[in-house]
């Protein structure tokens, strides 16, 4: 059992409840704002919802009110201001926190099944439907005898 208190902290933010002793606001307001140009700002806005907050793990960095999330937002703005690409930003985060921070798993051998799975399932389903139709066509004009189940029922009732 990992520490109960540790778990409690997660649960608190899990419901967007911020502990009252939060000190982040003062620290945050002390930092000078980072100004991005329109294109950088757009990329920042687009990427943020795809990043997972590590403290409030069911929220994105865009939504989380955790103080770490605020720090990371500031870092990411700083990276974009220095001309970083989306990939640079993702690498900055995965180097520190691992793939866990990416809400959109990158395509790799271990995620191939994840990305292909639903479409393979749909294809398999379509193939099964086609097979079913073909089988039905082959056995077209079914013999006019009751099926086994109906037959058994008749026999049961006769007993």
């Amino acid at each position: 059992m990992p520490s109960a208190r540790f778990a409690v902290r997660f649960l608190l933010c899990a419901a967007l409840l911020v502990p009252t002793f939060h000190i982040a606001a003062q620290v945050e307001s002390a930092k000078p704002p980072i100004v991005l140009d329109a294109q950088q700002e757009a990329r920042y806005r687009a990427l943020l919802p795809e990043l997972r907050c590590l403290v409030c793990q069911n929220e994105s960095l865009a939504d989380s009110q955790a103080s770490l999330a605020a720090d990371l937002r500031y870092e990411i703005r700083g990276l974009y201001a220095k001309g970083a690409s989306d990939e640079d930003v993702k690498k900055f985060l995965t180097d520190r926190y691992g793939e866990f921070v990416l809400y959109r798993p990158s395509l790799s051998a271990r995620t191939a099944l994840l990305w292909a799975g639903p479409f393979l399932l749909a294809l398999a389903g379509l193939a099964m439907v086609l097979a079913l139709v073909r089988r039905a066509r082959r056995s077209a004009a079914p013999p006019p005898v009751p099926d086994a189940e109906a037959l058994r029922k008749i026999l049961d009732e006769a007993k």
Partner: peptide, 13 residues
């Protein structure tokens, strides 16, 4: 104080 080193070390709680 500003948690910058914590970020480099991947501290999240």
């Amino acid at each position: 104080a500003d948690g910058r080193t914590g970020i480099d070390w991947g501290v999240y709680g």
